[in-house]
């Protein structure tokens, strides 16, 4: 699992590559929380995410909650079909906004 972070137009964009499972969920959590500072808008580009387990979903929920409490925006984009299905089955697509592409979410 790798996370590449860049900031564009006052938005933090983190690109997640590889798989997130119970073995590296803690690392994923620490990497995200240290990357996210006072950002008002955070986008996770999951286009290169090959797998996410429930431990990984838990991390995303914690990040979403922390950002919501700070009044910041949070969104996901570019999910492959199997990953999107994981979000749909668990119902988390109703909690965290999901966009088709980075361009789509940046255009908002």
């Amino acid at each position: 699992m790798d996370i590449d972070v860049e900031r564009k137009n006052e938005t933090l964009i983190a690109q997640v590559t590889g798989r997130v499972d119970s073995a590296n969920a803690r690392e994923f959590e620490q990497a995200l929380s240290s990357a996210i500072g006072d950002d008002r808008k955070v986008i996770l580009d999951l286009g290169n995410l090959s797998y996410i387990s429930s431990s990984g979903l838990r991390v995303l929920l914690l990040v979403a909650k922390a950002l919501r409490n700070k009044g910041a925006e949070f969104a996901l984009c570019s999910l492959s079909d199997p990953i999107r299905e994981i979000f749909e089955i668990s119902g988390f697509d109703k909690i965290i906004p999901i966009y088709g592409s980075l361009m789509e979410v940046m255009g908002e």
Partner: peptide
């Protein structure tokens, strides 16, 4: 005579 049946999966392990 009704039966309730449930299955659940908690996030994370251990």
């Amino acid at each position: 005579g009704h039966l309730g049946m449930a299955i659940g999966d908690v996030s994370d392990k251990g």
